[in-house]
C-alpha cells in the first residue's frame, strides 16, 4: 500500500487546516435546523411519491369505506342533528372526517414502521449523527410523517368532494391546523410505539392491538350518543380514546368551528407521547442503550 506521508512530520497539522480554522459548511443555529427539517420532510415526501402503491392503498382504503360501507349503511344509520351539523346529515357526510383521520392513523403507524425499518438498516444512525439536538431530529421526523399524512388526507377529501360531502369551501382551509394537530398526535403515538418494537416482524401485532381498537372504539363511524344507547361502558371507552377527539377536532374544523376540549386532548396526548418517545430514544437511557448493541458485541 502506498503512503507518501512522512511519519516524522505527519502529526503536525497540515498547512491547509491553519488557513481554515472552522471549515464547517453548515450552520448549527435555528436557520441550519430549519434546513435539516426541510431535508427530512423532503426525503419522506420523495420516498412516499416513489412508492405509488403506498399512495394508492392509502387512498383506496377510506374510499372503499365511503363508497361501499357508507352507501350500505345509509338507510339503516340515520344521523340526527349533532354539532357541528346544523341539519340532518347523511351517513356518508358524517363518516368523511373519521375516514380522513383514519388515513392519518394508518400513516402514523406507517411512519413508525419506517422508523423501525430505518433503525434496522442503519439510516437512523445517519439521522442521529446530525449535530442538532436529538429531540429536534425526532420532531423533524414527526413533522415529515405528518406532511405525508396531510397530503393523503387532502387527496381523499378531493375525491370525496364528488360524493356530496357538504363541506363548505372555507372548511378545507380551517381543517388544516386540525389535521396537523391530529397528525402530530397520531405520529407521536407511532413514534413511541416504534421505540417499543424491537424488530420489524413484531409490527403486525401493533396494528391489531392499536389501530383497530382505536378506530372502531371512536366517534369515527358512529356518533357517540348512539354508542351510549347500547353500552354506557363502551361510550366511556370511546370518550377516553384520543382518536375520538382527533376526529371531532377535524369534524368541527371542516365546518369552520372549533372544539376546545378535543383540541386540548389532542395536543396534550401528542405532547405526552412525544416526550415518552424522546426519553425512549435518549442515547443514555432508552432503547438505543438497552437494545442497540451490535451483533457479536452485545449480550
Amino acid at each position: 500500500m502506498s503512503n507518501t506521508s512522512n511519519p516524522a512530520v505527519a502529526g503536525s497539522p497540515p498547512a491547509g487546516e491553519a488557513v481554515r480554522p472552522m471549515p464547517h459548511l453548515g450552520r448549527l443555529d435555528f436557520v441550519g435546523y430549519l434546513r435539516a427539517l426541510g431535508g427530512i420532510v423532503r426525503r419522506e415526501l420523495l420516498r412516499f411519491f416513489n412508492q405509488k402503491e403506498r399512495f394508492f392503498s392509502a387512498l383506496v382504503r377510506p374510499l372503499v369505506w365511503l363508497f361501499i360501507f357508507a352507501a350500505g349503511f345509509r338507510n339503516t344509520l340515520g344521523v340526527s342533528i349533532v354539532p357541528p351539523y346544523e341539519t340532518y346529515v347523511l351517513y356518508e357526510v358524517y363518516v368523511v372526517p373519521g375516514l380522513a383521520v383514519m388515513i392519518q392513523l394508518f400513516n402514523g403507524m406507517q411512519s413508525s414502521l419506517s422508523m423501525v425499518y430505518d433503525r434496522e438498516v442503519g439510516s437512523m444512525k445517519v439521522l442521529l449523527t446530525s449535530p442538532y439536538p436529538r429531540w429536534t431530529l425526532l420532531f423533524a421526523k414527526l413533522v415529515a410523517g405528518v406532511s405525508v399524512s396531510v397530503v393523503q388526507a387532502y387527496a381523499f377529501l378531493a375525491v370525496a368532494w364528488f360524493w356530496e360531502t357538504d363541506i363548505p369551501p372555507l372548511g378545507y382551509l380551517t381543517a388544516l391546523p386540525a389535521f396537523l394537530a391530529a397528525g402530530l398526535m397520531l405520529g407521536a403515538i407511532g413514534l413511541f410505539l416504534s421505540s417499543l418494537v424491537k424488530q420489524l416482524e413484531n409490527f403486525a401485532s401493533i396494528m391489531n392491538f392499536v389501530i383497530f381498537p382505536m378506530f372502531f372504539a371512536s366517534s369515527a363511524l358512529y356518533p357517540l350518543w348512539r354508542i351510549r344507547e347500547s353500552s354506557e361502558t363502551l361510550y366511556w371507552i370511546c370518550e377516553a380514546n384520543p382518536f375520538s377527539h382527533a376526529v371531532e377536532l377535524v369534524r368541527f374544523a371542516l365546518y369552520a368551528k372549533f372544539e376546545p376540549v378535543a383540541c386540548a386532548v389532542v395536543i396534550g396526548t401528542g405532547l405526552v407521547f412525544f416526550t415518552m418517545a424522546v426519553i425512549a430514544y435518549d442515547p443514555g437511557r432508552g432503547i438505543m442503550a438497552r437494545r442497540g448493541g451490535p451483533a457479536g458485541e452485545a449480550s
Binding site: R47, K125, P131
Partner: peptide, 24 residues
C-alpha cells in the same frame, strides 16, 4: 451497514445529508 436510500438518486441522498448538517 449500507445506509443510503436505495429508491432515491445519488444526488437526493447527498442533498438529504447536506440538509442534516444545515447546509444551504
Amino acid at each position: 451497514a449500507r445506509t443510503l436510500d436505495t429508491d432515491l438518486t445519488v444526488a437526493q441522498n447527498l442533498f438529504y445529508h447536506a440538509s442534516l448538517h444545515g447546509i444551504a
